[in-house]
Design a protein around this nucleic acid. Structure first.
Lengths: 113, 113
DNA sequence: CAAATAGGCAACCAATGGGTTGCGTTTCGA
DNA sequence: TCGAAACGCAACCCATTGGTTGCCTATTTG
């Protein structure tokens, strides 16, 4: 397999992460969990203008993408932000950006010659 | 408005960008445009296992998110990667990450005292 | 122990999304 | 000039998604 295709494959792996982040409510949840630390569902529902059930569903989507993790404490279920997973998404964007920079410098070389 | 909510609002602005990136086919298109430079629809359709029309739709979604731009040259329509827009998404992830780092150090301080 | 709190499960609904096929329009080039 | 190439528009289809409501379970706590 060519180098390009290998890189492309790795990049495409990140699609589910972006899909999970690609909803305003979910992105807000992630941001909130990231800045406030672990929170329960009811706490997260306050300040969100949707039902608790909707929040639950969103959290499950985020968990499916590996962006959050849950921890039970008695009757409370705390949701914890997973920084490592977000870092993967960052790396993906970095790869695309640097590919672009390379393409630009190749073009520059080409024009100069 | 509190500082937290202001940051949260800015973060949520990025949701449409992530939504656009949150599809394997589209992410591949972005990556390809980023590494190979501007390409036409038919060129992009080759190597993608969907119809030209499907590719067109995906490109329109990407354009709607500001991640690509189109340029007509005769009967050909070239699609160009928009690095600036991707940079916004990167900044968004950086914000969340640094918020998390802050939260961790606050927790550390708290435990030490 | 009983009430209140935190949450799960399931059914249901309307809207969106990803994909296709069919056909029309513009532009290029032999 | 006329056929082929590149693309647009529109209709259609089915699966997914975001959201709700209703009801049930488990754990606190007064």
């Amino acid at each position: 397999m060519s180098r390009r295709n290998a890189a492309a494959l790795r990049v495409e792996q990140a699609a589910p992460i972006f899909a999970a982040l690609g909803d305003q409510t979910r992105l807000a949840l992630v941001s909130r969990l990231g800045s406030s630390g672990p929170l329960s569902i009811t706490r997260l529902t306050e300040g969100s203008n949707v039902t608790r059930q909707a929040v639950t569903k969103h959290l499950q989507v985020l968990a499916g993408a590996g962006l959050v993790r849950d921890e039970w404490h008695g009757r409370e279920r705390l949701w914890v932000f997973e920084a490592a997973r977000l870092a993967e998404a960052r790396r993906c964007l970095d790869v695309i950006s640097s590919q672009w920079d390379d393409a630009l410098s190749r073009l520059k070389d080409f024009v100069e010659k």
